[in-house]
Design a protein around this nucleic acid. Structure first.
Lengths: 212, 212, 212, 212
DNA sequence: TATGAATGAGTCTTCATTCAT
DNA sequence: GATGAATGAAGACTCATTCAT
């Protein structure tokens, strides 16, 4: 029904691939709406408009659907960040703008973000085990974009006197904190959204850069 | 029907309250290890060493176990924060020390923290509905401790020129980000723990206070 | 709580017998309110104000409670009928009055009547099996009172020309039909109760007696 | 976990509707044999020769099976009565013949009759609540056939001087009494069946009609 | 390719009953 | 004589998955 989030398939050969995408889209919607464990294959199949067994023509297992979504979330984020990495971040304003990409991505794709970084805690861990995609190339790329930036700024003497790797992790944590809390606690009496995001990012930047 | 053979010996160890605690402990462990939805009453019972029905002598429902844990997590955190609230936070160092209480609590009680703030969003929402304890007095207290501090500092002109409520939410987000990420991604190549925490808190404090 | 229905115990020796009666009373109330299968020993115990295991000091089994109630129902009815059998039934009015005893008993003790004659169909049959108390002396007595009367009236030439045993069964059926339907279908739009009972009994009597 | 051994062969016999009927048949048998509450879905499934979950492909709930049976019982009875309603009942013999249809139906379909009119009162009430099908169109039809007849006879001055609605309920009760008792107490020393039925119906008719 | 039909394993929960004190 | 605590068996129902067409 909701075709909105569909991403262009890598290889749009037959009809099969489209189906696959439909399934993923439906699953993503349901997973994040109801929680991975609360969604049944029946629901997914029904949402797509196919029969339950047909699902198994596209994915060997329910877990595989989750895994694919997880991977994609990272890819998407990495891509988002990368596309903004060419912005000039040698000014505080530029840096804030760059961080803003991450935050916006999270808040605009809460489904994906949740799957990627708040993955129902251990719920999925059983599946992924040693194969945690957090540490995959995809993640590395996401995280790498940020680190590259920090390293460069550090080299230029713009940051406080702390090892860039540490700063990177701190900045990431800072951003993640806001995004995840806002996603997880929509009922909380947050102050006005724009103001909060802006303030928060400036807090981070002020904390990281030498003199602002 | 009744085999009449040697009945499994009754585990008459923990009386009333003790048993109850055993159950909570086991449940907490399992919930955070596997996710609330992935844990069955069978598993809990087995972990405690009792039969499934016995569980129902202590808790009317599986959900009630989760709720009790959730409540306790907040109570514990609130208590932890309160016990440190008397520290003087009129210096940056004092402020950092205060934030440190929160972070330490989270990292030392990852299970509780997870239940409290990372609680599988939708998964538990079904139980708690509009009654999200996140907004309960207990939480208010937790959050309130921080806000009171911020308000006071703001009044003294120590903070940057941003409304204290906003600053409070920013600081909270900052702390939560680090704690939750470290809990959720233990496999990530974090830099040395102490250094990271320290650096992160100083980033926050620097970002919030006027001139450090 | 409701002591109303308690019958005087045969031997009111210690306290034990009273307890026993309390249990029976509570069970009767619950059984007929909720249905035998829907009532648990817990409920019975709680209604009496004792613990579940204590029940087993008075009755070896839940089924035994049901059986005792069943037996008593018959005894009660037999006694009721017997007490009215001395009324003169040589007039149609007298006969109607006698039948009325049966009907009134049923409608005033729907619990007992149900247990006795509508015994949740097969629900209890599993227990009673070959031991159906319907055919017990107690029943015989109940039925016997009616038959004696019919036989006598037949001998006097008052009844239509049909074998008295057959007439007895017909009359019994007639009464049972009204009582059981009114008990079983309280929601049915019955006409005014008194009028219906009266009309029905006269229908029976007119059908049985020679000329009315 | 999955033993992977020879899976029990799937019983692919009865397609859709047939399967459904098989289930209903088995359920009817069990329900009337043991009582609705005493029958488990497992038993039903086993009686049909299918697995428990398969049941749920045909009926959303155990209660629904009961409800369908109940409805059918009424439909069947209504249909039986209707098919005989064209008989002329302006003579006593004709009236007896008409009543006979009801009685015969009950005795020939004791299971259905039981479900319809002796249905463990409270047991099913929980399911049907205010929606007691006894008062449904189907019932109304059943009952209505009889009432129409009575009304007409009353108008013709054939009946005793009692309001036809009352007479209808009396006649119905009379028939029900015989049918239900004979069904419920097969062990009772009834007189010869044909004679009893005939005598009973004549008792009723004599009691209702003015001069016979 | 897709699906109607079926299933083993498992879900939470309740029951009648018993053990040990 | 009573009970707190425990339990095996069973209750209805759902799930991910697979077989046969």
């Amino acid at each position: 029904m909701n075709k909105g989030q569909e991403r262009s398939p890598r290889k749009a050969k037959g009809q099969g691939v489209e189906r696959r995408e439909e399934i993923l889209a439906a699953a993503l919607r349901l997973f994040t709406q109801l929680g991975v464990h609360a969604v049944s294959t029946r629901q997914i199949a029904q949402a797509v408009g196919i029969s339950q067994p047909t699902l198994y023509a596209y994915f060997p297992t329910k877990a595989d659907i989750g895994m694919e979504l997880h991977s994609r979330a990272f890819a998407l984020l990495a891509q988002g960040l990368a596309s903004g990495a060419d912005r000039r971040s040698d000014t505080p304003e530029g840096f804030v703008a760059m961080l803003r990409i991450y935050v916006d991505f999270g808040l605009q794709n809460p489904d994906m973000y949740r799957i990627a970084f708040m993955s129902e805690g251990a719920a999925l861990r059983t599946w992924w085990r040693e194969n945690d995609p957090t540490l995959s190339p995809s993640t590395a790329s996401t995280y790498g974009v940020l680190r590259r930036e920090m390293t460069e700024m550090h080299a230029r003497g713009l940051t406080v006197d702390v090892d860039p790797e540490t700063l990177t992790q701190s900045v990431w944590s800072g951003m993640h904190g806001l995004v995840s809390l806002m996603i997880a606690k929509p009922g909380f009496p947050w102050v006005e959204r724009e103001a909060l995001i802006n303030a928060h990012l400036w807090v981070i930047v002020r904390g990281v850069l030498k003199a602002v």
